[in-house]
Amino acid sequence: MNIDSIKNGIVIDHITAGRGMEIYHLLGLDKLDCSIAIIKNVHSNKMGKKDIIKVDSDIVIDTNVLGYVDPGVTVDIIKDGVLVEKKRISLPSEIKNVILCKNPRCITSTEQELPHIFRLTDPKNRVFRCIYCETKAD
């Protein structure tokens, strides 16, 4: 299968196989006009299978979202057809408005304007907790 290489844009690589679509939606890529390729189940020596997303536009993506959903992905920045930067995305210390607190007793349930912020409290077990009520993210 051939997918054209991109000139100016980003390549999100090493996505856990099957998570490509989820990341596509979470990053809001469905709202873009440019060419986007979601490649599923690509052979990988390290991972066995992986997904890749190529975006043919010089956009800025929320790496915290990526790190929360799938730590270990890499983001390649391509400029004039050349790889200028390769970022390995790790687990973020905080995520904002990525997930919503489901605790009905949390202040976010009544104050609609508040950002939903979750903080990493246990990196080993990837536990994020709401900063307001400390409820664990699902």
Binding site: N103, R105, C106, I107, T108, S109, T110, E111, L114, C130, I131, Y132, C133, E134
Partner: peptide
């Protein structure tokens, strides 16, 4: 004091 959790933090 507030009935909602996290209100004083806000």
């Amino acid at each position: 004091r507030h009935p909602k959790e996290g209100a004083p933090l806000v």
